[in-house]
């Protein structure tokens, strides 16, 4: 084929004479659908933290990441300076206590991942490649979940590090902490996957970023408020199930069931429900949310 040959032709252009090597074809491998999925996943994970974007898009994710870690770091530092002092934080209560930061991260970054592709019509380009529509939805959801996982894992690792360093017997402390690994890995996972699913389910339904962010915040605020009010004001059965409206209560219950201990005086410990209830409800909400995202991308015009 003639076009595979590089013909050197000097060509006049605005920037002076340039040597045009001619168009060259590509005969190398074409990696197909799985590679496209992986590419989209990594690109979206980077985008969730504003990497490769302008400084402005880094402010929110990095600011929230810092706020997420600072309490753990400060508590750790105090522990190191005053050995024997008790930290207010542990693996059980940290993510529960910092749930607003997780919620804000979802509200800010889930729309970043999906709304702008809709608003700028980039979807028609994605869907005109080897990627299936469900691949797009799952890659974006996976990236959001991975970003949340990292955000939630980081402070727990700080707590881990602080308790090892604060201990007089470092080697012994490492051994002790090994037993906590399921909790250190498990809790962020239990928080990340359902939160990402919820955030994506809401954000994927509007190309307007501000609407998506507002809707996600509203869902978290309203569910927490309603759950709280009903459990205070309601009687009997109602006050028992009311906290389940709040997704974070479901998450804490699931965590409590699978990898940790209960947090004293938390809604979960007050609710007096058998813990698998939280787990089953969390799984149901997550699956429904993922289903909604898949449905949305099967129907959306591109």
């Amino acid at each position: 084929m003639t076009r595979r040959e590089a013909a050197v032709v000097p060509r006049e252009s605005a920037t002076g004479a340039i040597y045009d090597l001619g168009y060259r074809g590509y005969d190398g491998p074409r990696l197909g659908r799985r590679a496209a999925f992986a590419t989209l996943f990594w690109a979206s994970l980077r985008a969730a933290f504003g990497l490769g974007r302008s400084g402005r898009s880094k402010v929110v994710p990095w600011g929230l990441s810092a706020i997420m870690i600072v309490p753990a770091a400060v508590a750790g530092a105090i522990q190191a300076l005053a050995p024997g002092g008790l930290s207010p934080f542990n693996y059980d209560n940290y993510l529960w206590d910092l749930q607003p930061i997780l919620a804000l991260f979802v509200a800010a970054q889930a729309p970043e991942l999906v709304s702008s592709d809709q608003r700028n019509h980039v979807l028609s380009l994605y869907f005109s490649h080897a990627l299936a529509r469900s691949d797009y939805a799952l890659a974006k959801f996976g990236a959001m979940a991975a970003a949340l996982f990292m955000l939630a894992l980081a402070p727990l690792l700080v707590i881990l590090l602080a308790s090892i360093l604060a201990s007089p017997d470092v080697a012994g402390a490492v051994g002790d902490q090994l037993g906590n690994l399921p909790q250190i890995i498990g809790s962020p996972l239990i928080y990340a996957v359902p939160l990402a699913a919820l955030g994506m389910a809401i954000a994927s339904f509007t190309p307007r970023r501000a609407y998506a962010t507002g809707a996600i915040i509203a869902v978290f605020l309203v569910s927490a408020a309603v759950g709280g009010i009903l459990s205070e004001a309601g009687r009997g059965r109602l006050s028992l199930v009311a906290p389940l409206i709040n997704p974070f209560v479901l998450l804490d219950g699931t965590r409590n069931w699978l990898v940790g201990n209960s947090i004293p005086d938390s809604p979960v410990s007050r609710a007096d429900l058998t813990l698998p209830v939280f787990g089953v409800l969390t799984a149901a909400v997550t699956l429904i949310a993922i289903g909604a995202v898949l449905w949305r991308y099967r129907r959306i015009a591109a």
């Binding site: 190398g28 491998p29 074409r30 990696l31 197909g32 590419t39 989209l40 994605y126 490649h129 080897a130």
Partner: peptide
């Protein structure tokens, strides 16, 4: 987009 199309 090149990578989405399968280029290494």
């Amino acid at each position: 987009m090149g990578r989405m199309a399968g280029l290494p």
